[in-house]
Amino acid sequence: MTGRSSNLHLALWIAATGLSYGEIARRIAAEAKAQGHRQIAPDATRVRRWIDGERPRPPGPRWIASSSRC
């Protein structure tokens, strides 16, 4: 993973929600679908990759932030 650093803030935030990576992914997919982005379908592995330093493309970060509000 050259050039990437873990996203500790995201990991802590997800831990604080009490939600699994799979549930975070399902909520993001539901939010994307509700906004007409049917091609957005992350899974638990994708959420782990974000924590490991991969950067989601916009508007993904907004959906990540809203996924724990349900």
Rank of each mutant, 00 (worst) to 15 (best):
49 R>W: 08
19 L>R: 15
56 P>Q: 03
11 A>Y: 00
26 R>N: 11
28 I>P: 04
13 W>Y: 14
22 G>F: 00
7 N>F: 10
34 A>L: 03
2 T>F: 10
44 A>G: 07
42 P>L: 01
1 M>N: 09
53 G>H: 04
68 S>V: 05
60 G>D: 00
69 R>D: 13
13 W>C: 04
57 R>H: 06
37 H>E: 15
46 R>P: 04
62 R>S: 09
13 W>N: 08
19 L>F: 13
67 S>E: 08
11 A>D: 02
18 G>A: 07
19 L>S: 05
45 T>A: 15
18 G>Y: 06
11 A>E: 13
2 T>N: 14
67 S>P: 02
47 V>F: 03
12 L>Q: 14
69 R>P: 01
36 G>M: 01
8 L>H: 10
59 P>Y: 12
36 G>A: 10
4 R>S: 12
36 G>L: 01
56 P>I: 04
33 K>I: 06
40 I>L: 11
32 A>F: 11
57 R>F: 10
37 H>D: 05
44 A>S: 07
11 A>G: 05
35 Q>D: 12
19 L>N: 09
66 S>G: 13
3 G>M: 07
70 C>Y: 10
4 R>N: 12
5 S>R: 13
36 G>Y: 02
30 A>S: 05
68 S>I: 06
53 G>K: 06
64 I>V: 11
9 H>W: 06
56 P>V: 06
48 R>N: 08
22 G>P: 01
21 Y>P: 09
61 P>R: 04
13 W>H: 14
6 S>M: 07
40 I>W: 15
33 K>P: 06
35 Q>Y: 06
18 G>S: 07
31 E>Y: 08
15 A>Y: 00
11 A>R: 12
3 G>P: 01
60 G>P: 08
15 A>R: 09
5 S>V: 02
29 A>F: 02
14 I>L: 02
39 Q>F: 11
13 W>D: 09
23 E>N: 08
34 A>R: 13
41 A>C: 02
24 I>Q: 12
15 A>G: 07
10 L>S: 06
6 S>P: 13
14 I>Y: 00
59 P>K: 13
5 S>D: 05
46 R>K: 14
54 E>Q: 15
57 R>T: 09
51 I>D: 02
5 S>L: 11
8 L>N: 11
44 A>V: 01
27 R>D: 05
29 A>T: 14
18 G>D: 04
50 W>V: 00
30 A>Y: 05
20 S>C: 06
41 A>P: 04
38 R>K: 14
32 A>W: 05
12 L>F: 11
48 R>S: 04
70 C>L: 12
60 G>M: 10
67 S>Q: 10
3 G>Y: 00
36 G>N: 04
14 I>P: 01
26 R>P: 05
57 R>N: 07
60 G>T: 02
25 A>W: 04
4 R>Q: 15
32 A>I: 03
6 S>A: 15
33 K>R: 15
29 A>I: 03
65 A>K: 11
67 S>C: 04
48 R>W: 10
2 T>A: 13
23 E>W: 04
59 P>M: 03
1 M>A: 09
25 A>S: 01
52 D>M: 00
69 R>L: 06
30 A>W: 02
24 I>F: 08
5 S>K: 13
64 I>D: 10
60 G>K: 03
16 A>C: 02
53 G>T: 12
34 A>C: 00
50 W>S: 04
21 Y>H: 15
